[in-house]
């Protein structure tokens, strides 16, 4: 009985979430774009007969044709399959080494890692206050004042270009912003009565921070995280474009653009065009979704 009610409640929550999305046109469009890329990324192997690294030297730098829907790049690799496997790296798998990968895309892991780091720092400094708060916040201020591109450059140039290192770079760069957000939410929530109650019960600070405060701050954090996935994809693309992303021959969107750029003026723009469109559409989609959600949820509050 109880389990059934819980399930019903879950379904209602889910339904409410979806109705918020569908109430806003921008969020619906955003969700459609994002779902398209997630679908493509998950089912990539089933959607194309080519692998992303298969070369066809008879068909280099070709435009769209029946054999290759979007054309081929300078080594005759099928662009559509490279694009799909690129989406896979961003959204579905994190290639740790050549033969080993873990589920969850590179961008998602980056955001997740910065959420853990940032939330911990924000909770501690918001809940404890005092000199801990002061020290942590000043350090994060100093970090935030460093130009982001410089941080990325220094981090990736020093630890080397690989998927895991891109995750580390995204996590480090994203941490200060999340910590600030969580801290401000914590400052608000810790004055509530249920926190007082938990303190009176004698719960440990860690329990209060992670079980009482964090779940109650989830709304703004979720929307912020969604925007941050957009930033992370943006950052991944930028790093790849600068030659600091995943090493070749990985189908990394940014490095595909960087490589294809050399052939634009030679008359074959396809290799640079498609990954640019892919990355732009995915980032715009995520932002539309987050924007629509924020507007709608504000209307209900």
């Amino acid at each position: 009985m109880n389990g059934e009610r819980l399930l019903l409640l879950r379904i209602r929550c889910l339904w409410e979430g979806f109705s918020i999305v569908f109430a806003s046109k921008t969020a619906t469009v955003g969700l459609a774009i994002v779902l398209f890329w997630v679908f493509v990324a998950v089912f990539a192997p089933a959607l194309t007969p080519y692998t992303p690294t298969e070369q066809d030297w008879r068909a280099c730098n070709k435009g769209p044709s029946r054999a290759h829907i979007l054309g081929t790049d300078e080594l005759g690799r099928d662009l559509w399959s490279r694009l799909m496997y690129g989406a896979r790296i961003v959204l579905v798998v994190l290639p740790v080494s050549d033969h080993f990968w873990i589920p969850g895309g590179t961008a998602l892991w980056g955001v997740f890692a910065s959420l853990i780091l940032g939330a911990t720092l924000g909770l501690i400094s918001g809940y404890h206050g005092g000199w801990i708060d002061e020290t942590v916040m000043r350090l994060l201020d100093a970090m935030m004042s460093i130009p982001i591109i410089l941080l990325y450059l220094i981090i990736v140039a020093s630890i080397g270009a690989s998927a895991v290192n891109v995750v580390i770079a995204i996590a480090i760069v994203g941490t200060p912003g999340i910590a600030r957000l969580v801290r401000s939410l914590t400052l608000d929530i810790r004055t509530r009565e249920y926190i007082r109650a938990a303190e009176t019960r004698g719960e440990s600070p860690w329990y209060i921070m992670f079980v009482e405060i964090l779940p109650n701050a989830r709304g703004p954090i979720i929307i912020d995280a969604m925007l941050r996935v957009g930033y992370a994809i943006f950052a991944m693309g930028t790093l790849g474009f600068l030659g600091l992303g995943l090493p070749p021959p990985s189908p990394d969107w940014g490095s595909m653009v960087a490589k294809g750029r050399e052939f634009i003026l030679a008359g074959s723009p396809w290799a640079a065009l498609w990954p640019s469109i892919a990355i732009a559409s995915l980032v715009v989609g995520l932002n539309l979704l987050a924007d629509g959600l924020r507007e709608e949820s504000m209307r209900y509050l």
Binding site: T26, G230, F234, G237, T238, F241, G254, V257, A258, R261, I264, L265, P269, A272, L273, S276, I277, I279, A280, V283, V284, N287, L288, D291
Partner: peptide, 25 residues
């Protein structure tokens, strides 16, 4: 505002490539 958002979140290199393709090529 939606147009502004689209331009501001598109990575600079993608915008640059689009502009090169349209204006130069």
């Amino acid at each position: 505002s939606v147009g502004g958002m689209i331009f501001s979140v598109t990575p600079e290199f993608a915008t640059g490539i689009f502009l090169i393709l349209i204006m130069a090529v």
